[in-house]
Design a protein around this nucleic acid. Structure first.
Lengths: 144, 144
DNA sequence: ATTACAATTGCAAATGAATTGCATATTGAC
DNA sequence: GTCAATATGCAATTCATTTGCAATTGTAAT
């Protein structure tokens, strides 16, 4: 049912080593090629799909961007019980353990009869690093 | 800079009249055609883009679905200060005024240095109606 | 209403991400 | 090694969306 291949292995190791970054099919293709591997886009797509099914990766799309993004899921990580922060600038996803989660869930159920599915819930915004970068820019602009 | 046209007018009125539903370009094309209007997909796309720019509509994409969805934004509605609930089944978006919002924002800033952008933040899950429907199904299955 | 020009539209062609069919190559169990 | 199952490359295809351009329509001034 499941062979171990050089390609899929490389891809999984790549994502594990860059656990807090996201990548597109194209990115993976380029990195593999740059790493001296010969691979085909179709294979990249097939392997990404596969790793997503196996819950090794998480995939998502956003309104502004045309391509699907993938990010590593730590083994055993339970995305069903915490919220996610996604940086609109760099795409990084932070898995947020939050004490408030129960309060939020209850509030939403009581007020709207809505049951939250944490695994697919994302709060968008700016991460610390990207925020600092944009503040740098502002600073420069003032002195320009 | 901005002419009023029958097409864009129809589209805006359609979304306003179905404020709690979402629709794709294809849906709009079909409804307009069914309504006796002759319109071209390119025009539908151009008008949807335009209405999105004007903040009449909000657009989004999700990982599982290939097409962009649009939903009406009530005029003057400030999506920058409340969270959004999106039903994974029917796509409906609920604008949720929540007292907890400040607490959540503060928590996330303090713990992660992350600044939430409410306008693009979506909690996924099941709305009351869709939940009842799936419970119906379960009931039927038990008695089947 | 006629003119004049900018904005809008239709049509067909182009783009670009993702998928698929099929022949060939690779994998792992024996 | 042999063999069946799985994975891959390649080329062709699909499908949503975009674009160039000529024709049409909307608006305001005459």
């Amino acid at each position: 049912m499941k062979y171990k291949t050089k390609n899929r292995d490389w891809i999984e190791r790549y994502f594990a080593a860059h656990a807090d970054e996201r990548a597109r099919a194209k990115d993976i293709y380029e990195k593999m090629t740059a790493d001296g591997l010969s691979i085909n886009m179709a294979t990249v797509y097939r392997n990404l799909d596969r790793l997503e099914e196996e819950n090794v990766l998480k995939a998502y799309k956003t309104a502004g961007e045309d391509e699907k993004f993938y990010q590593y899921m730590r083994p055993g990580m339970d995305c069903g019980s915490h919220l996610h922060l996604m940086c609109s600038r760099c795409g990084r996803i932070i898995h947020m353990d939050i004490g408030l989660m129960n309060e939020i869930s209850e509030y939403v159920i009581n007020e709207y009869g809505f049951t939250i599915d944490c695994g697919h819930s994302v709060l968008a915004g700016l991460c610390r690093e990207c925020q600092m970068k944009s503040e740098d820019k502002k600073g420069k602009m003032i002195h320009a």
